[in-house]
Amino acid sequence: MSAAEPKPWFVYLVRAANGALYCGISDDPQRRFVTHQSGRGARFFHSSPAVALVYVEACRDKSEALRRERSIKQLTKKAKEALVLAAAVQAV
């Protein structure tokens, strides 16, 4: 019997209506975004609603996602915007 593959986790960025970027992790970023849009899941969106899921990055497991989230949160806004732009270019 082989060990089960760890469930993939994701780090994501959501743009708020005021232009700010929120960074989080989830095993289902689309579902988490819907939660943010409904005003639940993070106090961050109480003052400015979630408007778009703008960046998603797959990670091996929850531990890796947490490490990546920490590193993204330390980036400047300009560097976070560069991640969003690079993801948009790849999607085209």
Rank of each mutant, 00 (worst) to 15 (best):
G24M: 03
Q30R: 15
E81I: 06
K80C: 10
V92C: 13
D61W: 01
A3T: 15
I25N: 04
D61A: 14
M1H: 13
L21D: 04
E69V: 08
A91D: 03
Y22P: 06
S63G: 15
K7C: 14
R15C: 14
A86N: 08
V92H: 14
K73S: 04
W9G: 04
Q90R: 12
S47A: 15
A79I: 10
P8Y: 11
E5Q: 10
R70I: 02
M1K: 15
A16L: 00
L53E: 02
E69N: 07
R15D: 05
A82K: 12
S71Y: 08
K62A: 12
R31C: 13
V11T: 08
K62S: 13
V51E: 14
A91G: 13
K77Y: 15
A16F: 03
D28I: 12
A88K: 11
S2W: 10
T76A: 03
S38V: 09
P49H: 04
S26M: 03
Y55H: 07
Q30P: 11
Y22R: 01
A50W: 00
C23F: 01
I72C: 08
L83I: 12
A20M: 11
G19W: 00
S63F: 10
A52N: 14
A50P: 07
R70N: 07
S2Y: 14
A87E: 14
A58Y: 09
E81D: 10
Q30T: 10
R32S: 01
V54D: 04
V89L: 14
A79K: 15
C23I: 00
Y22V: 02
E81L: 09
A42V: 00
R15L: 10
A20N: 11
